[in-house]
Amino acid sequence: MDLEDEVPARRRRGRELEDALLDAAWDEVVELGYTAATYEGVAARAGTSRSVVYRRWPTKRELVLASVERRGARLTLSVPDTGSLREDLVALLDEVNAGRGQAMLVLGSYAGEFYRETGLTPDDVRDHWLGERTTALAQVVERAVARGEVDPARVTDRTVRLASDLLRQEVLMTMRTVPPESIRAIVDQVVVPVLTGGLPRT
């Protein structure tokens, strides 16, 4: 008898079962890294058999990408609307920092083996994370343009992503969440000046 057949499957089906498997896959990669993560480990975490996981995602690459999509869909952000670009950015980055610190570390650092072995880049994985959703940052910038705070000519994919790129870099360099004063420095000294053409705030 195959060992996987000795693992009793819980009576879960459909979306409930897939969610449990994908959550288990995420935890497996977070704790062990991509290379050490196994189908057997994911199955054990989910309380099911290896074949149940393998039938849905025949490669580890597919399984991990699906777990990234699942995690991204769960971590939705509220979009602040204070009437000020600066205050919206600070509120949004504070929320990202508090709620997504682990995810940023996983996508940017812990999953380094995944990038090397699959040939994907962090940008590729970010697309799976976001799915079809518009980013909260894009909405904040769009509102600032509508209010006349931001010159539309300054709005590009790169300038819209600037705040999150700088926050992620800070997380990866320090391997911890970012202090509030650093978030405000990112907003006041870099992001708002780039988007508005104003002088850095000291």
Rank of each mutant, 00 (worst) to 15 (best):
D5L: 14
D5C: 02
E6Y: 10
R13E: 13
R15Q: 12
E16N: 06
A20G: 05
A20Y: 00
L21Y: 02
L22H: 04
L22F: 06
A24P: 07
A25E: 06
V29G: 05
E31D: 15
E31Y: 01
L32K: 14
L32H: 14
G33I: 09
A37H: 02
T38K: 05
T38Q: 07
E40K: 10
E40L: 08
V42I: 13
A43S: 09
A43D: 11
R45M: 08
A46C: 11
S49N: 10
R50E: 15
S51F: 03
S51M: 06
V53N: 07
V53W: 00
V53P: 02
V53E: 09
Y54Q: 14
K60R: 14
E62R: 14
E62M: 09
V64A: 12
L65K: 10
V68I: 15
R70W: 14
R71C: 02
R71T: 13
A73N: 06
L75P: 00
V79R: 07
P80G: 10
D81M: 03
D81W: 01
T82D: 09
S84P: 08
R86S: 06
E87Y: 01
D88C: 11
D88Y: 04
V90F: 04
V90P: 01
L92Y: 13
L93F: 05
D94C: 01
V96S: 04
N97H: 09
A98Q: 13
R100E: 14
R100M: 14
A103I: 12
A103T: 14
L105R: 13
G112T: 05
F114S: 04
F114Y: 14
F114W: 07
Y115P: 08
R116N: 03
E117Q: 14
L120S: 08
T121P: 06
D123K: 10
D123M: 08
R126I: 00
R126Q: 12
D127A: 14
H128D: 13
H128M: 02
W129F: 15
R133L: 07
T134A: 13
A138M: 02
V140E: 05
V140G: 02
R143C: 08
V150T: 10
P152S: 12
A153K: 12
V155L: 10
D157S: 13
V160F: 06
R161I: 00
L162I: 04
L162G: 03
A163C: 10
L166K: 02
L172Q: 11
R176L: 01
T177M: 08
V178N: 04
I183W: 01
I183E: 01
V192P: 00
V192Q: 05
P193V: 08
T196C: 09
T196W: 07
G197N: 10
P200D: 11
P200V: 09
